[in-house]
Design a protein around this nucleic acid. Structure first.
Lengths: 127, 127
DNA sequence: TTAGGTGCAAACAATTTGCCGTGTT
DNA sequence: AACACGGCAAATTGTTTGCACCTAA
């Protein structure tokens, strides 16, 4: 009753994502597909990106809203998949990683962030 | 000529951030301060969070917009501070980190992400 | 006195949703 | 024929900005 059926638009969007390494935004996908598919709408792109992500065929990559931290010391964070809360993690910064990133890429690497995710203590005990 | 002067609101916001580990959003800071400071406006909170972040007194923690990736294999990313482009990095996944995170925290850690940042090849050569 | 700061509301940007006609099964 | 899907536009949500007034220096 709640099954997905084939949709040309959804497959187009998925194929687009499969064949790029640009980690595009919804808007980018829309702009790429629009010329060949003039009737495509931005809402459809958003809807299908969400469907694909919920099905696990693609991955979302972002914090949904901006958050702020007064602790300037580089440290990893943990983000709860359930409630969205962000916690500090007490790990040393691994600058070795930055050195290796510099070696293996052509970018000017200036640092990195580590973000763990899962279910936080709070959500775990509440249910 | 372009100097900052003292502002009660800015210090309030900064103090709030200093005394929490919740990595709050602008909205959260606003809600916390509002009861004691009824005239405070949300725009002021945003403005001062940006000022503080630009001065380097606090840190922003987010990708500005959602991006998508069809590569489900866990791999680190590089995000350009100048143009916002996101690139893949070719590093092995370090599941050792997840094990240690599980040990040192009370959360149910399910994985992690590594995000490097700096200036990408493209922006580097263009200027 | 004067440039920077604030409140407020309007503008903007990113994303979601309701409605209704279309397409897949 | 049933019901998921897409187009469109309106609604929501997160964030920025213009303007008139206020305040630290």
């Amino acid at each position: 009753m709640n099954g997905k059926r084939y949709s040309r638009q959804r497959e187009l969007i998925y194929e687009t994502l499969m064949h790029t390494n640009e980690h595009p935004t919804a808007e980018m996908v829309y702009q790429w597909l629009k010329p060949e598919n003039p009737s495509l709408s931005l809402g459809t792109v958003y809807r299908n990106l969400n469907v694909l992500a919920d099905e696990g065929r693609i991955r979302r990559m972002a914090f949904p809203v901006e958050r702020y931290d007064a602790d300037l010391h580089a440290h990893p964070h943990f983000r709860c998949d359930k409630c969205g809360a962000v916690y500090d993690m007490d790990f040393p910064y691994n600058s070795e990683l930055d050195r290796r990133a510099l070696e293996t890429s052509a970018h000017q690497v200036e640092g990195h962030e580590v973000i763990f995710h899962g279910v936080c203590v709070n959500c775990k005990t509440l249910h």
